[in-house]
C-alpha cells in the first residue's frame, strides 16, 4: 500500500492505495465520484477523461500513485459559483448528449481542447475529440456544443 495525496475538485484527499489501483477506480470507488465513467478500459473511448493539472487524461490508463501530489479535476469540479461551466451549458443547449454516458469525458476533453486551441476550426474540433467515442449522437451536436462555447467566449451571439 502506498500513501498518496491529491487535490480532487478543489479538495485535498489522502489515501492508502495499492500501486495497481487505477486513478479511475480511485476516483470512483474511494472518493465516490460517480461522474467519472468506465468505458473501454483500453484508452480508446475517453469516457473516463479527467484533468490532471488542467490537461485531459484518460484515468483508466493512469495509476492513482502517478497522480500523487497533482491536481485532478473531474466533471463534478468544473462548476463555478453554483453555475454550470459554459461547456456543460453548451452540451445541454446543443443537444450534445443522449444517453449521457460519454458526456463527462467528452466535456472534460472539450474544455482541454479549447484551452489549448481556443480558435479551433470544425475540423480541429473533430480531431481534438478523436480520443472520445460517442455511440448516440453521431458527434454533430457535440461539435456544435464546442463551437457554441467558442462563440460565447468570443462575445458573439450563439
Amino acid at each position: 500500500m502506498r500513501r498518496i495525496q491529491m487535490t480532487v475538485d478543489g479538495r485535498a484527499h489522502v489515501a492508502e492505495v495499492e500501486p495497481r489501483l487505477l486513478l479511475l477506480h480511485h476516483l470512483r470507488e474511494n472518493l465516490g465520484i460517480g461522474g467519472v465513467h468506465t468505458g473501454c478500459n483500453t484508452t480508446s473511448c475517453g469516457a473516463c477523461t479527467v484533468h490532471i493539472d488542467g490537461e485531459s487524461v484518460k484515468s483508466c490508463t493512469v495509476l492513482a500513485v502517478q497522480a500523487d501530489g497533482h491536481e485532478v479535476t473531474t466533471v463534478r469540479g468544473i462548476m463555478e459559483n453554483g453555475l454550470w461551466h459554459p461547456m456543460q451549458q453548451a452540451f445541454h443547449e446543443a443537444h450534445g448528449l443522449q444517453c449521457g454516458y460519454c458526456t463527462p469525458g467528452m466535456i472534460m476533453a472539450s474544455i482541454s481542447l479549447l484551452k489549448e486551441n481556443p480558435d479551433a476550426t470544425e475540423q480541429e474540433i473533430r480531431e481534438g475529440l478523436e480520443g472520445n467515442l460517442c455511440r448516440c449522437t453521431g458527434y454533430e451536436n457535440i461539435v456544435k456544443a464546442v463551437q457554441l462555447v467558442q462563440q460565447h467566449t468570443n462575445g458573439q451571439p450563439a
Binding site: 465520484i33 460517480g34 461522474g35 473531474t74 454550470w84 443547449e93 454516458y101 463527462p104
Partner: peptide, 19 residues
C-alpha cells in the same frame, strides 16, 4: 424544448448501475 434529462448527465450526477 431543451432536455430535462440533461442536468444530472452534464454534471456527472447520474445514477448508473455501477454507481
Amino acid at each position: 424544448v431543451p432536455r430535462k434529462e440533461d442536468p444530472a448527465l452534464v454534471t456527472g450526477r447520474a445514477n448508473w448501475t455501477d454507481n
